[in-house]
């Protein structure tokens, strides 16, 4: 469990982080997202104590690590493992030696180090590359070694700072699978800092959006995705673009609202409302429940209240697209005039 409260970082006149409050429960995966310049990397550096926060606390295991200094601070840093962007492996050390480095510096015995390096490499599925140098590994493989090294001192919290940035989609997926496995099997608390929304949708339980050094929105990923019109919700699950709307149709935006939406909802709605044009759709599994965003076209003479209640009974929120409707009418009028 990691509790961040009132975390503030000021460089000279610039406030980079402004009172960040954020708690990640044991075994939870939390993501912090935000545009570049929002303060993400500073937040990461304050959490793994590479930077001293100007104010606020970082509590891990009931201890405020940010308040410590000197030798105590050095020890405290071991509570939080870090997976760095592009892995940061030492070029002149083999994969196994890289994983062993924190343990050797910690002063562990040789036999213990060897045993743990073997276990860690096996966990990240890299035992067969133990004696390779970083230059002989792919980006995804390097990051696996980086993760093994982050776990070397058995931290209770693992901080992944843009750990999948710059990896191809395939490697990203496999790294995310590995991280989720760590949580499931080791109970590690994971804090993921990223600008990639796919990562958030893929593994996070909760998400917070950072902007100008403040958390502007946060919640569980499932809740955020279902929010009607928040910027984070739209970023997480963007409305698929609608092709040119056919004439004479009223456009409706649909959003899955219930935990369980029957896979047969489309035919059921059609049975009550008549012809239903599916114009664009995005459905996805997020955090164990399905979410969906769709645009459908209906006969404009349908009673709006009835349409909304039919969809509501199916667990779907429906909203008439006013702007789209006007657009269609204007388009039709324009064509008539011509």
């Amino acid at each position: 469990m990691i509790e961040i409260s009132g975390l503030t970082k000021v460089y000279g006149q610039t406030t980079v982080l402004d009172g960040i409050d954020f708690t990640v429960a044991d075994g939870e995966i939390a993501a912090v997202v935000g545009p570049s310049g929002a303060g993400k990397s500073t937040l990461a550096r304050c959490i793994n104590l590479l930077e001293r926060p100007t104010a606020g606390s970082v509590v891990v295991g009931g201890r405020d690590l940010a308040a410590l200094s000197g030798r105590e601070l050095r020890r405290a840093r071991r509570e939080i493992g870090t997976v760095f962007q592009s892995a940061n492996l030492l070029r002149r050390l083999t994969a196994a030696q890289n994983v062993a480095l924190p343990m050797r510096h910690r002063g562990l015995e040789d036999a213990e180090v060897r045993r743990r390096v073997g276990d860690l490499l096996e966990r990240v599925d890299m035992l067969h590359r133990a004696n390779h140098f970083p230059s002989q590994l792919s980006g995804g493989q390097r990051q696996r070694i980086g993760i093994a090294r982050g776990l070397a001192l058995r931290p209770s919290v693992l901080l992944a700072d843009e750990a999948t940035s710059g990896l191809d989609p395939e490697s990203t997926r496999s790294i995310l699978g590995l991280l989720t496995g760590l949580r499931d099997e080791l109970g590690v608390t994971l804090l993921v800092i990223t600008h990639e929304m796919d990562v958030v949708r893929g593994i996070a339980d909760q998400v917070a959006q950072l902007d100008h050094g403040r958390i502007v929105e946060h919640g569980s990923v499932v809740d955020v995705v279902r929010r009607s019109d928040s910027p984070l919700s739209r970023a997480l699950l963007p409305m698929p673009p609608t092709p040119r709307a056919p004439e004479g149709l009223a456009l409706w935006t649909l959003r899955y609202a219930a935990d369980v939406v029957s896979p047969f909802w489309l035919s059921r709605a059609s049975a009550q409302l008549g012809d239903l044009a599916l114009l664009s759709a995005l459905t996805e599994e997020v955090g164990g429940s399905s979410v969906g965003r769709l645009t459908v076209g209906l006969d404009p003479n349908q009673d709006a209240h009835r349409v909304a209640s039919v969809f509501e009974a199916l667990g779907i929120t429906a909203e008439r697209q006013i702007m789209g409707g006007i657009g269609v009418v204007a388009g039709a009028a324009g064509e008539t005039a011509a």
């Binding site: 793994n48 940061n88 510096h105 070397a152």
Partner: peptide
């Protein structure tokens, strides 16, 4: 690279 030194700092090396 400075990032490599940070690896040591973050894992509590002296």
């Amino acid at each position: 690279p400075r990032d490599l030194l940070d690896v040591g700092v973050a894992s509590g090396s002296s």
